[in-house]
Write a protein that binds this DNA or RNA. Structure first.
Lengths: 197, 197
DNA sequence: ACCTGAACACCGTTCAAGT
DNA sequence: ACCTGAACACCGTTCAAGT
């Protein structure tokens, strides 16, 4: 019964919350359901989280860490900057398609000063992309421009593909015939080659 | 008391919902609050909407129409394709910054078959962008490639900037010093010029 | 057709206790 | 420090009525 001392409950609740999120959408994620599934009274969660928003922020933070891991391992076997960008984007979009509710929680507008570790985790993800762009520039595989601006452009594009894919459940951006990765390489090539003559 | 016959209540509820949304975030938008503010019993809304999701879908639909109007009028005075893309993007991002909760509701994953008029409204917005790209190609101001793919690339980029701007309340993508429009022109120029040497 | 009132099963959050 | 139980004000949704 009381195997939950010393902070175990916090982790258990987060695991349960992630499970519930993958089943049923953010709107039906409740503290009371989490508590019940953890076999604990309905306000035990308040020992570990200030309120519901704090739980969501913790879930979001965990999401950025999971995303970073997936992107990192996707990149690891790619040789050129173009392929690295495609693999990273593919991992990002697939993460969004596999965990749409988690991504929705990740990109809610939180008060950054209230959840510093969340900000940290999300910035770590972005920094990884910054390094990718910078090393591409150093190798001469990307133009030598404002690295920050270029990084943000890639991020915006990939994030747009990811969130639009969630909203339209693949249909709008990713045609059924072609594989997700092939489609994404079209987007990345648009960004690399440019649309102006 | 009963000035609400013949479908007026439906519109009144949507107006009230939009107001509530601009004040307080999606999580605290409730049918009961809407009904109360409309001076009507707490389940009168069920005469006009199947459930809460149907209200949200209607709000989303209205949002796409508002967005289309803003983008259209922003485009109208721009001469080149580049300027039109910048003005359209600027309107899109400013709409998101001014109505973040509305945009959040617009891009939730709805069942398209359940809300056909919502799908229609959102596709109308996208079609307008498609025409912009196509006319740019015809004028030789854009490369002649797959128009669909190019349109989706622009859309993804702009939508990414918009949603990330909401999530990070301007900070992450739009530096405070520079105006939003200037920053957006950097993104668009990245996409036009391309990142590869 | 359009609206009301009572009722049900759920919420988040607080507060006084218990160990 | 960590958890429980009762209580409060709020939800969405349904159903039997009223006009």
């Amino acid at each position: 019964m009381s195997q939950y001392h010393h902070g175990n409950l916090r982790n258990a609740l987060l695991t349960i919350a992630t499970e519930l999120l993958s089943e049923d959408g953010v709107h039906s994620l409740s503290l009371r359901k989490m508590a019940q599934r953890a076999g604990v009274s309905h306000n035990a969660p308040y020992m570990h989280f200030a309120d519901k928003e704090a739980v969501l922020a913790a879930i979001a933070e965990e999401g950025f860490r999971l995303l970073s891991v997936e992107v990192e391992s996707a990149i690891s076997h790619a040789n050129t900057t173009r392929l690295r960008l495609i693999e990273a984007s593919n991992a990002y979009v697939n993460f969004a398609l596999n965990h749409p509710n988690h991504v929705q929680v990740m990109f809610c507008p939180y008060d950054a000063e209230k959840y510093p570790s969340l900000l940290e985790a999300s910035q770590a993800s972005l920094n990884r992309l910054f390094e990718l762009v910078k090393s591409g520039q150093e190798k001469g595989e990307l133009i030598s421009g404002d690295t920050q601006a270029m990084t943000k452009s890639v991020w915006a594009m990939v994030h747009g593909v990811a969130t639009l894919s969630i909203a339209y459940k693949t249909r709008a951006l990713l045609p059924e015939k072609i594989s997700t990765k092939e489609t994404i390489s079209v987007f990345i090539d648009c960004l690399l080659t440019g649309l102006a003559p």
